[in-house]
Amino acid sequence: MTARHDQMTARLMAHFGGTAMLTVPGGRDPDSPEWDPVFLPDQHVMVQAIVTGAELDLIAGGAIQASDMVVAMLPHRDVVPTPACRLTVAGISHALLDVQPVRSTPDGAVIYYRLHGRA
């Protein structure tokens, strides 16, 4: 990203953003033998996010419930969110129904992830 983008992101996060906890399910260790599987613990990662809300036409159309949460999450160097993850904001855990990477160009770096969660 450019220095200007980083400055704008920092200003937006300082004014509107906060931290949230992304929980990545552990699953089975692929290096463990099938006859003696080892299951990894869940990974809890603090991420920066802005709760943006949903467009009224999506709520009216039934795609999103009024109690759902839509979040813009900054990329994190250790984890990429998937629908198998959970996002905890203000003590409330949300299952991720949809995760969409947002890029400035089709093959560009991810600017942020749009997460649709439901408690």
Rank of each mutant, 00 (worst) to 15 (best):
T2F: 05
A3C: 07
R4N: 13
Q7G: 12
L12V: 12
A14S: 06
H15R: 04
G18D: 08
G18S: 10
T19I: 01
L22D: 05
T23G: 11
T23D: 09
V24G: 09
V24A: 14
P25I: 03
P25L: 10
P25V: 07
R28P: 04
D29Y: 06
D29F: 08
P30W: 02
D31N: 06
P33Y: 12
E34R: 11
D36R: 13
L40Q: 09
P41D: 02
Q43Y: 05
V45Y: 01
M46G: 10
A49K: 00
A54M: 14
D57N: 13
D57T: 14
I59G: 00
A60S: 14
G61S: 00
I64W: 05
S67K: 13
M69C: 08
M69I: 13
M69L: 12
V70C: 05
A72V: 04
P75W: 08
P75C: 09
D78G: 05
V80E: 13
V80C: 01
A84T: 09
C85S: 06
A90N: 12
I92W: 05
L96N: 03
L96E: 03
V102F: 07
R103A: 14
R103I: 10
S104M: 06
T105E: 11
T105S: 09
A109S: 08
V110W: 05
V110K: 10
V110P: 09
Y113G: 00
R114N: 06
H116R: 02
H116G: 02
G117K: 00
G117A: 01
G117D: 01
R118Y: 02
